[in-house]
Design a protein around this nucleic acid. Structure first.
Length: 537
DNA sequence: AAGCGGTTAAGAT
DNA sequence: TTAACCGCTT
């Protein structure tokens, strides 16, 4: 996922920070990455759609982090993925089938009694369903936490918000794990943020401005940077064999012009280059720079950055690969979390995550459990456990221990029979949670557990942060004319001589040998050349 | 020197 | 599931 090796390559520009750097600011969050991490701890419960509240622990995880941010006076803005864009359809399909395989294997292992192996496979099998996202959204609503569901890629939406002034609903930084954010043009991205708020930040303007730091990005701009990312290999277009991030960077640095860089690339690697590479490149470029996003102010879909008429033309007036446009009302309903962006059905009418639960109760977030008449006692306890982030008067460490111990001893005892396991887990759980006084959540915890641990760590970090690289003197700046730079990234000027090659079959190379069948069926569609590349994966 | 496939160690929940 | 490392290839 993301841009191959980009983060490693950008290492010199990574700065350890603490999130409190953004105190008083709005910060965007790639909700999917949190949902996914949160789902690890309850992957089996989610995969099997087991009864009980354990499967809502991912919500706990997300809220924990949200409250950590709020503790530092940061306004979180959670951004959810919408529909898949067509160019990602194949990859999604692929992931889905891998997850299904993992799930089947997990169940087999479980039946065999190998719980450890089963757990591992369940963790590979979890997928984040719209239903899960919606459950988190319901909590966010009730807790007055800002969120938005992107029409398509959350990354693009985050990049758009990142480009807006805070006074216009913009955000000052993005928390994510995905290097794609940089390719989308986010100005400030925080990677690997832990539960205390420590993370690694890349600020793209600092990258462009840095003198004497290698690799040098002097004279780069966002378009060139995105172009470099695509050449290095991204989700939408694999790199030409033998080309990685370093070569891509060297090419773009040398010519500061994507047309020329690609021409040279074709000259040097033409024989290994798919015929429609240029067109695919342009489409990938459009995905990164002109993706469809939701504009809150106008309540409409817009392009991340305005799409030049000429580029539109050179793409054959064909923008389906960005996902279809949609009416304002629909886009708004999606953005507000009222419509499932994939099915376009209202969320309340959705069946539960795997579509087979009888009771609606299990489909509701833990918050609602206190009004469920059935199994009241147990559920109230667990409900509380789902909100430990908010109020606990207890020391955090104690809580964490409780949560950890809650699971394993339980299902280990029961593994021999899957059916029993599914139906009865939680029903006779040891009441470890009994020791926790049932308290109702309050939004802003004064006793926020993140505080203590953080302060010491943060101070250490600040020392690190202040030590800037000072080897600047050695850097010899390459002279390049500004005329050369101006407009050089204008993709409209692309003159690929192989536009029609979209219809041609993908060139055989190492990557497509395994999936030749798929590749052909796709090229038969001859719709979108990016798809041809996906079939190679 | 860079890419790339394979292996291994460390991390998280 | 990364990240780091090794050895082989270009």
């Amino acid at each position: 996922m993301g841009i191959k090796d980009l983060l490693r390559f950008m290492k010199p520009y990574v700065e350890p920070i603490h999130i409190k750097k953004y105190a008083g600011k709005r910060v965007g969050i790639d909700a999917y990455s949190w949902l996914h991490k949160g789902a690890y701890s309850c992957s089996m419960e989610l995969c099997l759609n087991m009864e009980g509240d354990k499967k809502y622990q991912y919500i706990n995880y997300c809220m924990h982090r949200i409250n950590m941010l709020r503790h530092h006076n940061i306004s979180p803005v959670l951004v959810f993925d919408g529909a898949n864009i067509p160019c990602k359809a194949l990859e999604e399909q692929h992931r889905h089938s891998k997850r299904k395989d993992s799930r089947d294997l997990a169940i087999t292992k479980l039946k065999e009694g190998n719980v450890n192996a089963a757990t591992e496979m369940f963790q590979r099998a979890v997928s984040i369903t719209p239903s899960m996202a919606h459950q988190l959204i319901q909590i966010l609503r009730s807790e007055n936490i800002e969120f938005i569901v992107a029409p398509y890629e959350a990354d693009a939406q985050l990049a758009y918000l990142s480009s807006l002034d805070e006074s216009k609903g913009g955000i000052s930084a993005v928390i994510s794990e995905d290097s794609d954010l940089l390719a989308y043009g986010c100005s400030s991205v925080i990677f690997k943020m832990d539960r205390y708020g420590n993370g690694e930040e890349i600020v793209i303007d600092q990258v462009f401005d840095a003198v004497g730091c290698r690799p040098s990005f002097r004279h780069f701009n966002k378009e060139l940077f995105t172009g470099m990312c695509i050449i290095a290999g991204c989700d939408f277009l694999p790199s030409v064999p033998g080309i990685g991030i370093a070569k891509a960077h060297a090419l773009v640095t040398k010519y500061l012009n994507l047309d020329r860089a690609l021409s040279v690339l074709k000259y040097e690697k033409g024989n290994q280059m798919p015929e429609d590479y240029f067109k695919s490149f342009k489409e990938a470029f459009a995905v990164f720079l002109h993706a469809r996003i939701y504009d809150v102010a106008s309540k409409r879909l817009k392009h991340l950055t305005p799409l030049p008429e000429t580029l539109l033309h050179s793409l054959g007036d064909e923008l389906d690969f960005l996902g279809p446009d949609m009416p304002s009302s629909q886009a708004t309903a999606i953005a507000k979390g009222q419509l499932d962006p994939s099915t376009m059905k209202a969320f309340d009418e959705l069946p539960s995550s795997n579509g087979q639960r009888k009771s609606t109760a299990v489909n509701k977030p833990p918050e609602s459990l206190s009004v469920q008449p059935k199994r009241k006692l147990k559920q109230q306890k667990t409900t509380e456990s789902c909100f430990t982030f908010v109020t606990s008067q207890k020391p955090k460490n104690k809580r964490i221990t409780v949560m950890e111990k809650e699971t394993k001893p339980n299902f280990i005892d029961k593994y021999p029979e899957l059916e029993k396991l599914i139906s009865s887990v939680n029903d006779d759980m040891p009441s470890i949670l009994d020791t926790i006084p049932p308290k109702r959540s309050s939004m802003v915890p004064d006793n926020n557990p993140f505080k203590r641990r953080k302060q010491t760590q943060v101070e250490d970090l600040e020392v690190i942060c202040n030590s800037q690289p000072t080897n600047a003197i050695n850097e010899v700046e390459t002279k390049s004319s500004s005329e050369q730079r101006s407009g050089v990234t204008d993709l409209d000027k692309f003159t690929p001589d192989s536009q029609k090659s979209v219809e041609s079959k993908p060139i055989k190379n190492i990557r497509n040998q395994k999936s030749g069948k798929k590749a052909e069926s796709i090229s038969a569609k001859k719709k979108n050349s990016i798809l041809n590349y996906f079939s190679w994966k």
